[in-house]
């Protein structure tokens, strides 16, 4: 079996805030093979964005940040590298697509320049060659009239087109791993599907491993090979996407899936939601962090932290599909 492209080993990211230390990612381990797509799902505050950035190395050890554990890309631990070493990977081996296309592009730079500058810097292409390749990339991500668009400024493009440009920027130097952090959250619903389809087809064509981070289950179902559900900084369940959706074993995953609104629900029925709030990460509850909101919580859940066993972190994993809409 070939070594996985990405190995995350007991990753912990700790921030020192004015109100005290906060562990945003609390012992996450996962692997990703080349060409695979992994979805990371969780509420706001679950730590999924921090996880994405720590995997990339954008968040690393510093005056107020401590990262323990390992993130190995092709065998090399990112956090053990020098800043220059990490920079050499960014754009070339690992690339990232951020949430808001409005602000991810420099308003004073032309669209084409965003792309060509990475090409010239990382690949040493000449101006002309870089420009040609930039236009090709724009075509690849489905932007009509790519030559004209390349000369325009970001504010002249629509939101969906801007996100395509951001994706093109990420793909410019053929990275092996793409981390997409909520790539469609800031876009219109109709555009969302287009972008997600685009990401999916690109990943397939270029045999690129992808991590798709989202708070929206709908985004990851059907588009990812595997999924990891995060809650309060920890992975509570992971597995093949199909399996997790069909038979969720952690009450939280179950509740999440439950809360997806359904077209065939009776009209005026109550929209299922998970009661309560995510825990305060400055002082998380002891034991299972989901226990305060879990319908099936028992005494053991509040005192003993469940370990990740067989890809699920629960003392009493669900064994049958939840009753859907009684």
């Amino acid at each position: 079996m070939t070594a996985p492209l990405l190995e995350v080993d007991d990753l912990r990211t700790r921030f020192l805030t004015p109100r005290g230390p906060m562990v945003a990612v609390d012992g996450v381990s996962l692997t990703l093979a080349a060409g695979e797509t992994l979805g990371i799902v969780g509420e706001s505050g679950s730590g999924k964005s921090v996880l994405g950035r720590t995997i990339m190395g954008l968040i690393t050890n510093g005056p107020t940040t401590t990262v323990t554990g390992a993130v190995r890309v092709d065998g090399a631990d990112i956090h053990q590298l020098t800043p220059q070493g990490r920079r050499a990977l960014w754009g070339t081996k690992i690339a990232m697509v951020f949430q808001d296309p409005m602000t991810s592009l420099n308003p004073t730079k032309r669209v084409g320049t965003h792309l060509s500058e990475s090409l010239r810097f990382h690949r040493g292409l000449s101006r002309g060659a870089a420009r040609t390749r930039a236009v090709e990339l724009l075509k690849l991500v489905g932007i009509p009239e790519p030559e004209r668009r390349a000369g325009q400024y970001p504010h002249e493009l629509s939101g969906g087109m801007r996100q395509r440009v951001v994706i093109a920027m990420a793909l410019a130097c053929d990275p092996k791993l793409l981390i997409a952090d909520e790539p469609t959250t800031a876009l219109d619903v109709t555009v969302q599907k287009q972008i997600l389809d685009l990401l999916q087809s690109l990943a397939e064509r270029l045999q690129m491993a992808t991590i798709l981070i989202s708070h929206d289950l709908g985004t990851v179902s059907g588009r990812t090979d595997r999924v990891a559900v995060m809650y309060a900084g920890r992975v509570v369940e992971s597995g093949e996407t199909r399996d997790v959706f069909a038979q969720p074993r952690h009450p939280y995953s179950g509740a999440l899936i439950e809360s997806i609104p359904r077209l065939d629900a009776a009209s005026h029925s109550l929209l299922p939601a998970i009661v309560g709030q995510p825990p305060n990460m400055l002082n998380p509850p002891s034991g299972c962090r989901f226990a305060p909101r879990c319908a099936f919580a028992q005494d053991r859940c509040r005192t003993e932290t469940p370990a990740l066993v067989d890809d699920v972190a629960c003392h009493f994993p669900l064994t049958q599909a939840l009753e859907v809409h009684a």
Partner: peptide, 26 residues
């Protein structure tokens, strides 16, 4: 602190270059 600076970093651009070409103009 803008996102496009973070995006530029994520592209692997060196800090000095980011300072001059991305940050100075705005």
């Amino acid at each position: 602190r803008e996102d496009y600076i973070l995006a530029a970093r994520a592209k692997g651009m060196p800090p000095l270059r980011i300072l001059f070409t991305d940050a100075l103009r705005p």
